[in-house]
Design a protein around this nucleic acid. Structure first.
Length: 229
DNA sequence: GCGACAG
DNA sequence: ATCTTGTCGC
């Protein structure tokens, strides 16, 4: 996959925060994703340990959701975990893995926030500026915003509000499970993002591409490899 | 000053 | 996220 060199990552937290304010203006909300045209969906995740970041990207066919490619990339952690600045800690490793993906991907789901971020620049938006693929943020917990608990049935949703705007949606992906937080990454629309995430949650709470990437990242960290295809 | 806080 | 055993629930 083609990856652009938007900027370097040798920054301090103060510089990183200022860069986010500038980059947020480059994020594109829309157009709607033609989900009927989607052939492949990828998921990205990062596992950390012993000063290293182990990033993986799993590519699945759609709507079948079987794994067709898995790539991994490890890089030293050069930035601390600071709420709101996660991208500066994990993106270097993520783009390393994305660079090695050979399958044409139509959409990428990141295990993090997109526009549901204090400066509308979550990791999913950040990754979306480095690639041409539309990105979606699907996090397991909230970073910012207020919301009402969605209904208990799969498919129930509620708006995630912050600073007077709808920055994302709280989505129940399976009956009875805790909801996930979906928001636009880049080149995508919120409705499409929710639709895609729901279409990827056939058996588990998290979208299958993200689950596969998560498992591969843990294997990469523990065993130094992910298993072939 | 106090509480919140993706992974 | 990671560190970790047993244990409560479907």
């Amino acid at each position: 996959m083609r990856v652009r060199e938007v900027h370097g990552f040798d920054l301090t937290p103060v510089e990183a925060r200022r860069l986010q304010e500038e980059l947020a203006g480059r994020v594109e909300e829309g157009p709607p994703l033609e989900i009927g045209e989607v052939r492949h969906v990828a998921g990205a995740d990062v596992s950390t340990g012993r000063g290293m970041a182990y990033a993986t990207v799993a590519v699945l066919d759609f709507p079948g959701l079987s794994v067709v490619e898995v790539r991994g990339f490890e890089a030293p952690l050069r930035f601390p975990y600071v709420p709101g600045l996660l991208a500066f800690r994990e993106v270097p490793a993520v783009i390393g893995a994305l660079r090695e993906v050979e399958t044409p991907v139509d959409a990428l789901i990141c295990d993090a926030q997109g526009r549901a971020h204090p400066r509308r620049m979550g990791l999913a938006c950040h990754v979306g500026l480095f690639v041409d693929v539309p990105t979606v943020g699907c996090a397991k917990s909230r970073l910012v915003g207020d919301f009402r608990e969605p209904g208990e049935e799969k498919g129930s949703v509620s708006d995630l509000l912050h600073g007077g705007e709808v920055v994302g949606r709280v989505v129940r992906t399976r009956d009875g499970v805790s909801p996930v937080f979906v928001s636009v990454g880049n080149r995508m629309d919120l409705g499409s993002a929710v639709e895609l995430v729901l279409a990827c949650c056939t058996r588990y709470r998290l979208p299958e591409p993200v689950r596969q990437a998560h498992n591969a990242a843990n294997r990469l960290r523990r065993e130094g490899q992910m298993g072939l295809l």
